[in-house]
Design a protein around this nucleic acid. Sequence first.
DNA 1: ATCCAGGACATAC
DNA 2: GTATGTCATGGA
Length: 329
Amino acid sequence: MRLAGSFASLEYSFHVSSADVVGPLNLEETVLSAQTSEPEWLRLDALFTDVEDFDGTPVKCTLSQMGNVDQFALNVRVLSATPNTQIVDKLRLHLIWVLGLKDNLPLFYQTFADQEKPLSSTFSQLRGLRLMRGSNLYESLICSILSQNNSARLWNRTARLLMMYYGPRVEFPDRTVSFLFPKTEVLAKVTPHELRLKTFMGYRAKPVVEVSRLIARGQLRLDELAECSYEEAVEILLDLPGVGPKVADCFLLYGVGKLEAAPVDVWIHRIVSKLYFRRKKVSRLKTARFLRVRFEEWAGYAQLYLFDYARRTGFLRAAGDGSSRSTQR
DNA sequence: ATCCAGGACATAC
DNA sequence: GTATGTCATGGA
């Protein structure tokens, strides 16, 4: 499909083996869990492709997992828009971070194997499911705002439109074209009205622009936010327009990687109410607090497993919740 | 047509 | 602290 050596300085490949990873990996489950705060990766059969600006170099990464969840090799093919000889080593570390490959999954399973029945019952089926991080803080925050009271499918589409209208256009050596996520400065200048018409983000346009302006003016520094404790970060985030408890947790978990954050959406709210509060609806704030107290540094993972399990098995419907319907992916 | 989606926000109790 | 209505938009 391609001429050997024709993009010699722009094409790389390497692999990550199970020896480089703490515990099992189920790449497909991880990517398809639709759990990031960024647009979902593209899928073609067993190949997953992500395009992003990495360290100033636009790259297209195509991943595939060979072997099984315990003994595997993660094959990575990289197409770089511009030459960058150091990209491989950095990209390896980046992927380890993005896919959560250093998260101690065996410890997670072991810790909750006995005392947490509803949760531990998911371990065999979801073995190797990891918590994906976003690749960019700004993108994660904006997408988290887009996700409020929206379906995953719709906010993903809105994010794609954002990229196509306002993001940098990049062309790869194989002649494919992609669009990266827009720069802060670009979205800081656009009007909410225009944003709404082009990307169908509805009332979320205003906070998207306002947050972009805060960052562009230097009044909000996401990298500093990432250095704060969970509690400090939440306090700052809640002051932002369009950011409530769920969006803040979403950004902190998937964007920043704070594993004690547990975003409580409608699904988690129902699941936790049913499993841990005898089907009684407790408030969302209590639900989030419960998850943090109960699972501590594993709260994000507990939320991930319960969420994926519930959607995958139709758990809520089967148990007669009555307030939910089909779960499409 | 009506309800819902990985909620936030103002307002009222 | 908790309860209710409103906010755009597309899909079921």
